[in-house]
Design a protein around this nucleic acid. Structure first.
Lengths: 206, 206
DNA sequence: ACACTCACACTGACATGTCAAATGCCATGT
DNA sequence: ACATGGCATTTGACATGTCAGTGTGAGTGT
């Protein structure tokens, strides 16, 4: 924790409390109390709150207070659609050779995602690790940045809604990886879209 | 300007100066000078700078200074790829009926984009207006949010690089709109991708 | 018992002041 | 002429204090 600056410390503190459901949607966040708890002043707290607000975690009403945003069905749907768009674009770029370069790394993560039998939260993190690397090998910083942003928010919203996140159980990640290395751009995108949508239709009615 | 809070005023001020090339990449931003110019204190300036840094406009080095980020070819490429991903996902969702509902609005913007003969900057804005509505009719807030974020950054980076933005001249927007209303999901996405990539291959070597 | 009013406490937004670190300049030594 | 070391300056990060708007509950009148 604490990569030097105090504002990052506050940011991570609030984020962890949200992911651990210590702060639930609708809860009010008192900046002065946070500042006291972390033995700091109001400015780092204000900066962290501003970041979290911009990222969609908090809503701040002037002279009313700041509360954890209550996610709706439309929000969850939006995150999934953006994620799908980014990942499909990713595999479109990394078809063939680029994937084979990092094949060992991806294969290890794919088997881990397939075999993980732990609790839902842990399995979801294992699944996420695989998909993140799949975007990472794109060598496109912007794509990865947007992906991280969306998934961080989606992770919180799902844990907040007590929704068992629909990570993939039906479609093997190892098989997915094998298919992606053989297909062309359009085929890889279609395959990826199928994988992402498997088991997620309960949230989408597209 | 100034939607109430002072920090938004500072944010808009800096953003406009960047878009007008009053602040160019590599220029140093003095927070105290900005605060003096706008007759405000350091806190709103810090907040605005933090937002612009998170959005990729500025880079802040502790105890060195804050300067306008110098965009590289990879940055421009990244913005275009993310934009392509989002817009292709958009038309995939709004194929058929949803598009016809806003057909008048879209058609007017399409003809405007086709006929615009003004300077490059203005033509680019006209083109952007059309594409933005195309995402707007998706009714997906998250998709629109990411689109706005990417395009705002892309707009600045192109004007900063003195690159004549490769908005579309070869492919008619009216024809594009007509095609989109007839095609299925895969066809609409392919058509949209073709439109976006027309005239942009000078930046991409995909 | 009920509705209305008003003062107090609380919140986010902002102003002013301070601190430590990194840079750039200049004098000094070789 | 060139390298080097110290000092003042500049900058981002932070602390403390203030202000105005808002919700709330006590208190009053009917």
């Amino acid at each position: 924790m604490s990569s030097g600056t105090m504002s990052d410390t506050v940011y991570q503190h609030l984020l962890q409390r949200m992911l651990r459901s210590d702060l639930k949607p609708g809860d009010w966040v008192d900046r002065r109390r946070i500042a006291d708890d972390l033995q700091t002043s109001l400015m780092p707290v204000a900066e962290a709150v501003q970041r979290l607000t911009a990222e969609g975690f908090l809503v701040s009403v002037p002279r009313r207070g700041t509360q954890v945003r209550v996610p709706g069905r439309e929000d969850v749907r939006g995150q999934l659609l953006v994620r799908e768009a980014l990942e499909c674009q990713g595999v479109r770029l990394t078809r063939g050779q680029p994937i084979r370069d990092d094949y060992q790394r991806l294969h290890a993560l794919a088997t881990a995602a397939d075999d993980c039998a732990g609790p839902a939260a842990e399995a979801w993190l294992t699944d996420l690790a695989f998909h993140r690397v799949l975007v990472e090998v794109t060598q496109c910083a912007a794509l990865l940045e947007h992906f991280d942003r969306v998934m961080k928010l989606a992770l919180f919203q799902h844990s907040a809604l007590l929704t068992p996140y629909p990570f993939n159980r039906g479609d093997s990640h190892v098989q997915l990886l094998k298919d992606l290395s053989k297909l062309d751009a359009d085929g890889a995108e279609a395959r990826m879209r199928k994988h992402i949508r498997t088991g997620k239709e309960q949230f989408l009615d597209v």
